[in-house]
């Protein structure tokens, strides 16, 4: 299995993350996510769309096993990251490979911008030399287009930045660990249109190096930045194909209705 994937390396885009029959429930017998099957392509942006409460966040958070914080949540099926089932791996290892960005920017309030970017190293006890640290900070902040804005105030608290800058700092914090995939749950929904646009442009840059799975409420955002799109409804993955197709020629009636603004 793993060998097969290795040989696929030079085919246009190989799949880095695969959901196999994934179901998730908060309460016994009620499935918030039902039998989802999907494969996410490497170095692409995949958008998850759907009306409120359809299970987008639930599905996204299963990838880095955030659900384990809440013992009542049950996850079944397989979630393969680079061919290995994350549900069988060590949770901390999974989380280092799958970075997460939250809806509200949440830089660590007691840490400087510099420390925030390095938080993943610091909290995991990964030792890096001073010069490596500087390098990681600069590279990560450049990746999210924040370097020029903050390079003279790296030692200031992250919480002094604007909302959009804070969110980019949080993305830099996730990127710094060089994860295999970035999970983003409506990362721009708390931001103004200009800050949102900046992040969208930045995501298109990030895609050259990272795989991004992004939940969004904003259809035009999905259309602008994503390569593939999932449409979820009542916990089911109704439709999953390349974004172009899903917007111009949806297969399912519910997708069409949602995209034409008839519900949601």
């Amino acid at each position: 299995m793993e060998n097969m994937q290795d040989t696929k390396q030079d085919s246009p885009k190989h799949c880095i993350l695969e959901f196999k029959d994934v179901s998730i429930s908060y309460t016994e017998g009620k499935w918030a996510v039902k039998n989802v099957n999907a494969a996410i392509k490497e170095k692409s942006i995949t958008a998850i769309m759907g009306p409120s409460g359809c299970g987008k966040s639930t599905l996204l958070r299963s990838v880095n096993r955030m659900h384990e914080l809440y013992p009542e949540i049950k996850t079944t099926g397989q979630i393969l990251l680079d061919g290995k089932d994350v549900l069988q791996m060590n949770a901390m290892e999974v989380r280092r490979k799958a970075g997460m960005v939250f809806q509200r920017p949440n830089p660590f309030p007691t840490m400087s911008i510099y420390e925030n970017v390095l938080a993943g190293y610091k909290l995991n006890g990964i030792k890096v030399s001073r010069s490596q640290k500087d390098e990681i900070v600069q590279k990560s902040l450049q990746d999210v287009g924040l370097w020029e804005e903050v390079k003279d105030s790296l030692m200031k608290r992250g919480s002094f930045l604007s909302g959009g800058q804070q969110q980019r700092l949080c993305i830099a914090r996730a990127v710094a660990l060089r994860p295999r995939i970035l999970l983003m749950d409506e990362p721009t929904s708390a931001l103004d249109p200009i800050a949102t646009r900046k992040i969208e442009d930045m995501l298109l840059e990030l895609k050259k190096e990272f795989t991004i799975l992004i939940v969004t409420h904003n259809m035009s955002q999905a259309a602008r930045i994503s390569d593939d799109s999932m449409f979820m409804y009542l916990g089911e993955l109704v439709e999953f194909s390349d974004t172009q197709t899903i917007f111009t020629n949806p297969r399912d009636k519910r997708t069409e209705e949602y995209l034409s603004g008839q519900f949601g």
Partner: peptide, 22 residues
């Protein structure tokens, strides 16, 4: 905010590290 704890854990840190250092 609960997101602080989640942010720490999402970076792969252990529970006790998140409590002590975040």
């Amino acid at each position: 905010p609960g997101s602080l704890k989640e942010a720490g854990l999402a970076l792969g840190a252990s529970y006790s590290t998140v409590i002590l250092r975040v």
